[in-house]
Design a protein around this nucleic acid. Structure first.
Length: 568
DNA sequence: GCCGTTTTCGGCCCGACTGTTTTCAGTCG
């Protein structure tokens, strides 16, 4: 039984305990034990003594041992015998928790969504103590969409939502400052909802402006300081706005950015010092409350450096904080090495892209249109590629402070051959190789294709090395250990494709690349000027793998980058 | 259930909102 399965059993036990109305600390003890396993980088076999992990004690260790030795849990089986299988899914209905569901089961024998619907329609639910008409109506309403609404929303969906909401909030005068918070700010690959923190001295005016300007499908809550909507569309995510005073803003933003585990760790640190953290500030022993100008000042108060939201997982950031100043940030980025123009499937010309890159403050960049194989993307033949050269030279001539390089995103064909001959490749400054076809091949064949590209002396980088699309497809499943070993051997770059649909390599693979000493490039793969903004999310994502700026080739100066290309 | 300890039991992060009840429980993040 592997770690994922063990974690799932522990979480299942917690869920069943919840439905039995068990002690809430006991429930969270099981969840903490699951999290402790999950947050440990080692496999189940590599962990000698699970009780050495903080959060795992005698009880949960016994469950784990039984699972490993016998593949089952008596504890879980016992609970499953007592709690009907139809109850756990009901926890997903907003407004219903363990206690209410337990009551519905105990008093009305409700053990499924269907039974709940029937009882609510018959008006039986509102007769229970603690329930009433509104609760019953809400249950019926939630049951309509029950099981249909997706639980989490991929980062590529939310990236657009956040861009839109940012634009709206910027127009509301009563708002002094605002920021997205929650798991989106920590750049999780998917989030349940979107959280915003707003600083204002006129909460009511902000509330009214939000109700007026944000297009929503439904109002979930509308209190004095918390407004919550479900956004339109079949998969519309929910979005929460919290309004605090400017003094409270820094601590509130920190609190609502999480993660929960990070907050717990920090609150413990505060408690040990006789202080108490809440979203409104840090309460001192004399009852006074300290507030902070910024999150930096808040962390400094606890003698900690500013921890970027992306590393706030509740573990490594408290052990590895000396490394934080070395982590890559968007300010370190000097170029973008992967983008498309109207020559292939991009929306803007070489000239337009070049100007946008200069406006971003970059020193250099590479135009990398698709190669001829990719006909759907209007891939370039060697002849058109040669013609594009003139346009790029013209741009450089007109803009001597910038270096626009000539490149290609060349397909690695299904048979393993490369789309351009060496004679074509050697004329280019920068060559990307990537797979866009025949994802379903066996791994050996995929690896052979990648090997062919990696050992070619004119290839510099493998783009989106797994081909995954978050929540949509897994990609072509390369052997990452082997791929990185070859990249190291042939001195190639692997990409972190910053397009929020991809984020490829993923965090775990990026950690492997760092470990193997393979340089990484963070690129937007922009198909339009607006998509150059993906560098923001790309650099933040890289922080999650604790990538230092010196591992990222596009933080290097133009001279250092060119040296790397020429001396490989 | 876990942890820590002034070592064997008390505390476990903390607050907003809703719906219910009339001072609070449950849910949520």
């Amino acid at each position: 039984m592997n770690k994922n399965q063990v974690v799932q059993v522990l979480e299942k036990i917690a869920t069943y305990l919840e439905l039995q109305g068990a002690n809430s600390f006991k429930i969270s003890a099981y969840r903490k034990a699951a999290a402790a396993l999950e947050n440990d980088a080692r496999s189940m076999e590599e962990i000698e003594d699970v009780t050495a992990l903080k959060g795992i004690g005698k009880g949960t260790a016994a469950v784990i041992t039984e699972l490993l030795e016998h593949g089952k849990s008596t504890e879980l089986e016992q609970l499953q015998a007592e709690v009907p299988a139809g109850l756990p899914p009901l926890l997903k209905i907003p407004g219903l928790g363990g206690k209410k569901i337990a009551k519905l089961y105990a008093e009305l024998g409700i053990d499924s969504a269907e039974a709940l619907k029937k009882a609510a329609e018959e008006g039986k639910v509102q007769q229970l103590a603690g329930f009433a008409k509104k609760t019953e109506e809400k249950i019926l309403k939630e049951l309509e969409t029950f099981g249909k609404r997706s639980e989490t929303h991929p980062v590529w969906q939310l990236e657009q939502v956040v861009a839109d909401i940012d634009a709206i909030l910027a127009t509301i005068e009563a708002i002094e400052c605002f920021s997205v918070a929650g798991s989106y700010r920590r750049v999780k690959e998917s989030s349940k909802d979107v959280d915003y923190m707003i600083a204002s001295t006129a909460a009511l005016a902000v509330k009214e402006a939000l109700l007026e300007k944000v297009t929503y499908a439904e109002i979930v809550a509308a209190g004095d300081t918390k407004i919550s909507f479900i956004l339109p569309g079949e998969e519309g995510p929910s979005i929460d706005f919290r309004i605090v005073t400017p003094q409270e803003y820094a601590t509130a933003l920190h609190h609502f950015t999480g993660s929960k585990e990070h907050n717990v760790r920090l609150r413990q640190i505060a408690k040990d010092r006789g202080e108490k953290i809440s979203e409104y500030g840090v309460e001192q022993q004399d009852g006074s409350v300290l507030t902070f100008e910024s999150e930096e000042a808040f962390f400094n108060h606890f003698d900690l450096p500013f921890m970027p939201p992306t590393v706030r997982a509740g573990n490594a950031e408290f052990e590895r904080y000396a490394e934080i100043p070395k982590l890559v940030t968007e300010a370190d980025i000097r170029s973008d090495l992967h983008m498309h123009t109207t020559w292939s499937d991009g929306a803007h010309t070489v000239e337009e892209m070049g100007r946008a890159l200069m406006a971003k403050g970059y020193e250099y960049a590479v135009i990398t249109d698709h190669s001829q194989y990719l006909k759907v993307a209007n891939g370039l033949t060697p002849e058109r590629l040669a013609k594009q050269r003139e346009e790029i030279l013209r741009f450089n001539h007109a803009n001597p402070t910038f270096n626009l390089l000539r490149g290609t995103e060349m397909d690695i064909l299904p048979d393993g051959s490369l789309d351009f001959s060496d004679d074509v490749l050697k004329e280019l400054d920068f060559v990307i190789a990537s797979i866009h076809s025949s994802f379903a091949q066996p791994q050996e064949q995929i690896m052979e294709r990648l090997h062919n590209a990696l050992k070619n002396p004119y290839v510099h980088m493998i783009a989106h090395p797994t081909g995954r699309v978050i929540h949509q497809r897994d990609g072509y499943n390369p052997d990452m250990v082997q791929l990185l070993a070859w990249a190291k051997k042939y001195n190639k770059i692997v990409e972190l494709n910053a397009n929020p649909y991809r984020l490829d390599l993923c965090v775990a693979h990026l950690e492997m690349a760092a470990e193997a000493g393979v340089p990484v490039a963070i690129n937007t793969d922009a198909h339009a000027i607006e998509q150059l903004r993906y560098m923001t999310i790309g650099t933040k994502y890289a922080q999650k793998a604790w990538l230092h700026k010196d591992m990222i080739v596009n933080t290097w100066s133009f001279e250092k980058f060119m040296d790397f290309l020429h001396t490989r």
